[in-house]
């Protein structure tokens, strides 16, 4: 007999076999949760405080797109930035140009559209953790300078921009949103295996600034408040 949909865990409890686990876990108590595509997404934690926040977005779909001619792709209708290090944020999609032939597509608001049918795309959601550090400009950058030697406040690039470099010596893709009045955010991904080390170490580094885990709602509210970015529109701002 094939066990379908449900099964028995090693402790004899029935387990949902479609249940997926985030590589990141916080000690805080969830206040509101939601099951989404097998992920138990925490929308809000108890005692989240007023920020800065560390938010687990690992369930958000992430794609890698590679081709020798990236200009022919428009993930979700968004043009991939031409220059490595540039990012475009439109339609809830963040697109980070990594190098000559590669870009990363991060779904910040929803998981559609699905583009994985095209050969150039590889879904990499499972391969990394995805965290957002959200807070005031000074909080966010003060915390980050404790954990990375990357210049996240560089003035040469207009946010959002991508830096590929280490956090705690772990290779990461780091995207900087610096919105001054609306607050700043650092979004980053790194290998999934580091998830269980990365989150507590970040919380410890940010303890002096009051960094606490927060649910997805805090991030969604913030990201929705931003106007769309794209290389084409930058000139208008």
């Amino acid at each position: 007999m094939i066990l379908k949909g449900i099964g028995y865990g090693c402790e004899g409890k029935i387990v949902e076999t479609n249940q997926r686990h985030s590589p990141v876990s916080f000690l805080s108590t969830p206040d509101q949760t939601e099951m989404r595509n097998g992920w138990k997404v925490v929308l809000k934690y108890k005692d989240e405080g007023t920020g800065p926040f560390l938010i687990d977005l690992s369930h958000r779909k992430r794609l890698d797109v590679q081709d020798s001619n990236l200009s022919k792709f428009q993930p979700g209708g968004v043009t991939i930035p031409e220059v490595p290090g540039q990012c475009a944020f439109q339609n809830g999609l963040l697109i980070n140009r990594m190098n000559r032939t590669q870009a990363a597509v991060w779904h910040l608001l929803g998981d559609s559209p699905d583009m994985t049918q095209e050969t150039a795309y590889t879904e990499v959601t499972e391969g990394s953790i995805f965290l957002a550090l959200l807070g005031s400009e000074s909080e966010v950058f003060s915390i980050m300078e404790k954990v990375t030697s990357q210049d996240l406040r560089q003035t040469a690039n207009e946010p959002p921009f991508l830096i590929q470099g280490p956090i705690f010596h772990v290779p990461c893709q780091i995207v900087v949103f610096d919105e001054k009045e609306k607050g700043s955010a650092i979004l980053f991904t790194c290998s999934r295996g580091y998830g269980i080390s990365m989150a507590p170490e970040l919380l410890e580094a940010g303890a002096e600034y009051g960094l606490r885990p927060a649910g997805e709602k805090a991030f969604s509210a913030w990201i929705k408040s931003l106007i769309d970015y794209s290389p084409q529109r930058r000139g208008d701002r």
């Binding site: 066990l3 099964g7 028995y8 865990g9 090693c10 402790e11 004899g12 387990v15 949902e16 076999t17 479609n18 249940q19 997926r20 686990h21 985030s22 590589p23 097998g38 992920w39 499972e126 391969g127 999934r192």
Partner: peptide, 16 residues
């Protein structure tokens, strides 16, 4: 298997 399913599969195989 996709990493997020590993824990469930591990338990399932142990039980099976």
């Amino acid at each position: 298997v996709p990493s997020s399913y590993m824990r469930v599969l591990w338990d399932l195989l142990n039980k099976s």
